Simulated assay, not measured.
Amino acid sequence: MTETNWRVRPEMRDDAPAVRAVNAAAFPTEAEAALVDTLRKDSLVWLPGLSWVAEAPDGSIAAHALLSRCWVDGVPALALAPVATAPEHQRRGAGSAVVRAVLEAARWYGERLVLVLGHPEYYPRFGFVPASRYGIRPPFEVPDEAMMALVLDDSASVPMGTIEYPPAFGV
C-alpha cells in the first residue's frame, strides 16, 4: 500500500483509545502512549487540530502524529512527538502520510516552526534539517543530526536558543 492510499484526518475524541493503542504497539514501552494522554490534558500545549491519524482501509487507526506546543527562547514553536505506526502497517507509507498531513495543518494554522528529535534518515524527507543550523539546541545531549527543525513560515526570523518542552516530556 502506498502513501496515497491512506486516508488522513484530524484525531477525533472517540479516537483516543485507538491512538493510545497505536502508540503503545509502535514503541518498546508505553511511555509515548502515556505522553500523548498527558499532553491531551494540558490545554496550554495540546492544540486542537494538530493531532492526526491515518486510517487503514478497514477504518482502523494505522498511524498517528502529534504536534504540541513548545518554545524556543520563549517564542512558540511545535514539537513533533510522537509519530507512531501500528507494526502491521509500518513501511507502507502510513507514517509519512500522517506526518505530511499534520505539518500541512500546522502551516494552515499559521505555525512557524516544528522541531523533532528523531531518525536523521527519516525526517529530512519532510524538509527537516539539523536544528543547530538555526542556532536551536535541545535541553539535553543528543547527536546534532537527530535534533531537527522545519521552518513552515520563513517570513519572520527563526528564534535561536534552547528548546523548552512542556512538563509532560519530563526534560
Rank of each mutant, 00 (worst) to 15 (best):
H89C: 11
A86I: 06
P124N: 14
V19P: 02
Y109G: 13
S68K: 03
A65E: 08
E88W: 05
R100W: 07
A65Q: 07
A149C: 11
L35C: 04
P130H: 01
L115I: 03
A146T: 08
A81S: 15
E55N: 13
L47S: 05
F128R: 13
P57D: 15
A63C: 10
E30F: 07
A21Y: 02
R107K: 15
R107D: 12
A24Y: 08
W71Y: 13
P48A: 09
S43N: 08
V75I: 14
R125T: 03
P138K: 06
A149I: 07
V151G: 15
A131D: 10
G93W: 06
R137D: 14
V142L: 13
R40P: 03
R100F: 05
K41S: 09
L78C: 06
E104F: 02
R133L: 15
A34Y: 08
A24N: 11
L150E: 06
P28T: 09
Y109K: 15
L44C: 12
L117N: 10
H64C: 01
R107M: 04
R107Y: 06
F128H: 14
Y134S: 09
R107I: 04
A81V: 12
D37M: 04
E145H: 13
F128T: 07
V99W: 11
W71T: 13
L67D: 07
F27M: 11
G93V: 02
L115V: 03
D144F: 01
M147T: 03
A94E: 08
L39I: 12
P28E: 10
A56E: 07
L39T: 01
A21H: 08
T38Q: 15
W52Q: 10
L117C: 15
A86M: 11
A62H: 07
Y109T: 06
P120N: 12
G74Y: 09
A62S: 12
Y109V: 00
R100G: 14
G127K: 11
H119A: 10
P124L: 09
S68H: 00
V98L: 02
A86S: 14
E55W: 09
V83H: 11
P124Y: 11
A79F: 07
W46Q: 00
F27S: 06
F126I: 10
D42S: 02
V129I: 15
Y109D: 13
L117H: 08
P57R: 05
D73K: 05
A86T: 02
V129M: 11
R100Y: 00
F126Y: 13
W52F: 09
R91I: 10
L115P: 05
A18T: 06
P82D: 10
P138A: 15
R137S: 15
A81M: 13
G74D: 15
R69H: 03
L117T: 12
V116S: 00
A62Y: 10
K41P: 00
V53D: 09
R112T: 00
W52A: 01
F27A: 07
G59E: 14
Y123A: 02
V83P: 13
A21S: 12
D73P: 05
